[in-house]
Design a protein around this nucleic acid. Structure first.
Lengths: 342, 342
DNA sequence: AAGTGACTGGCAATCGGTTGACAATTGTTC
DNA sequence: GAACAATTGTCAACCGATTGCCAGTCACTT
């Protein structure tokens, strides 16, 4: 016991330097540059030599030192992914999608969140930029010119946002909102509210604007209600204002605020969906858990993550890429909506 | 419009190389090594010179190139954080805690998940090791010797796991389980089941073992029921086995399986908690959402993340650090438990 | 006035790769 | 058999920092 324990400690302490191309060169009797070519430029060398070098590399357990390579090439093999709030489950699928594409292409993702703070976002973005090949900004709360400035340093792609001159990947919120409002109208709702998200969120603007346009077109009354934070707490705090607004249905900025509102309604004995219908946005983990289960508008999150990374990669390669079509959202009907009381 | 658009594109295309210490050296008329000292060894230089250099650096918007620094020093300023499944909300708080400590100390965290696959975990760990100063393995599904091997390459700390010779940060699951079983016993439960998690999970072993010991000690009958995956789906699939086991209460490996089981009970008309009491583990986001809200055993996740990173940092500095006390878990009573029917 | 030591700042080697230029070798063609 | 081309591998410079060693200054002792 003690013996093996000691052995392990020793082993850990003795961490020897990992093998380099110089070690491989010595072992095979060629020059380091030849080793580099054998490993990176298949075909450039004699097939036998290449074989020998590759075998030696495998035998030594050689792994390239990314830092050393990054120096002359300027390529780190790393992409930065910056989200506004890591504790929002909506980002799960997006991160998963991004990660999948990244690992397919042998890239590493550095993942960070800005806790809904623009200052922190800018600082983090700048810090990351020194060590990544490109940056993916998801739901950025920065101002347009700040994003443009960042983009002048390193390739950058925004998701859930549009900024002039910056490549972007966005969903089309219209299909989902249209279906949702259609259902509400058919169910007799005439007065609805939009429970807003952060003002700095472009996505929030989109959701409000389309809901507004459609409601106006269909002759429903619509009001915007502020919420303090795009969280469950924020949704709960808005309860009083929602109640006072005298509406029969609420479309929320996202599922978090919808869930917060839903819970608060229950705690105050306000019947959902009997007296108030609630619709969320994103279809996050847990949206189906409460009673009534939350109806929501599903975002194509995994696809946004995948496309975001793909777009970033072509941006890094300097390739042109035509703008792809926006990814559609989809209404997910659950139990939180019902007919309006006449 | 087109004009400014073109301007932005041009700007992005013209990405000029960021300033280096050589630029600063030229601007201030000193040598690069002096610049390096001015920036990293405060006091080593004449105060005026240092001032001049710092000002010049600020003016140029200099940011150190982490790659270039990493080469001679071997320090990348980056830590790897590897979790078993990024879509498990349990990791939120842990990641947040880890991130906080890391950014306090100026470190960057690279975050990755292994999707419950040991092979992927090993591959990812090895890949990360080439570019980080140390690795934090959370809920690793690897075997002990694999972890020990990894540890012989770079500093490594495990969370929610114990491996001989490897520094670890773990919670103490006993307080939470003890309180939970105490409540069940007082409520008249005599036959309970443990709905298991992955066999490769050390944490699963802990939870089962302590529940087992306590149940035996208190003369309650206890059985272990396998689940296919530590997810909501896995919990739902176990419903039949749970029902067949003829128990009045279930302690689940984690909240995900508990939530899955809870939902399945509801869908099959099995009254929770009237006929079956359910207790989860972790207290994840959403545990309080269903009706009945899920009782659970809360893990000190943020603290685990913080301590994990701290421990890793001292490990990197080669410092000794005495083992801290295990962090206690805590029972969170909600609606999913009730008295057993006699 | 020579000796001592503290303080400053420069030189040059080094980390581990990449890559353009070139030399050596081999094969091909007339 | 000489001229030429293609193939293969080496040389050496370079990426952007860090750091041990040394030299020059200057003030202060004795």
């Amino acid at each position: 016991m003690e013996q093996s324990d000691a052995a392990i400690r020793t082993r850990a302490a003795e961490r020897k330097a990992p093998p380099t191309i110089y070690d491989i060169a010595r072992l095979t009797g060629v020059s380091p540059s030849t080793v580099s070519r054998a490993l990176n430029k298949p075909g450039r060398l004699n097939a036998q030599t290449e074989r020998r070098i590759r075998d030696a590399a495998a035998e030594l357990g050689y792994r390239i030192n990314p830092m050393a390579r990054a120096l002359p090439t300027g390529k780190t093999g790393t992409l930065g992914l910056l989200v506004s709030d890591i504790t929002n489950p909506a980002y799960f699928d997006l991160v998963r999608g991004a990660e999948r594409v990244a690992s397919e292409t042998g890239m590493t993702i550095v993942f960070a969140d800005s806790q809904e703070s623009p200052e922190l976002e800018r600082a983090t973005a700048e810090r990351l930029q020194t060590s990544v090949d490109g940056l993916l900004l998801v739901g950025s709360r920065l101002e347009d010119h700040q994003i443009q400035d960042l983009s002048s340093v390193k390739p950058l792609v925004v998701v859930n946002r549009l900024v002039e001159g910056i490549p972007a990947v966005i969903p089309d919120v219209r299909p989902g909102i249209t279906t949702a409002l259609e259902l509400l109208r058919e169910a007799g709702h005439r007065r609805i509210a939009y429970l807003a998200g952060p003002e700095a969120s472009w996505m929030n603007g989109q959701r409000w604007q389309h809901a507004f346009e459609i409601a106006v077109e269909w002759d429903m009354s619509i009001v915007e209600i502020k919420s303090n934070a795009p969280t469950r707490e924020g949704g709960a705090e808005a309860f009083g204002r929602v109640k006072a607004a005298d509406v029969s249905a609420v479309l929320a900025y996202n599922d978090l605020v919808a869930l917060g509102l839903l819970r608060e309604c229950r705690d105050h004995g306000l019947d959902v969906p009997g007296r108030l219908s609630i619709i969320g946005f994103d279809d996050i983990f847990g949206a189906d858990l409460p009673t009534p289960a939350l109806s929501t508008i599903r975002m194509p999150l995994a696809a946004l993550g995948e496309r975001g990374i793909r777009r970033l990669l072509t941006e890094i390669d300097g390739g042109e890429s035509e703008d792809e079509s926006a990814l559609p959202t989809e209404f997910v009907g659950r139990e939180s909506i019902a007919a309006a009381r006449s």
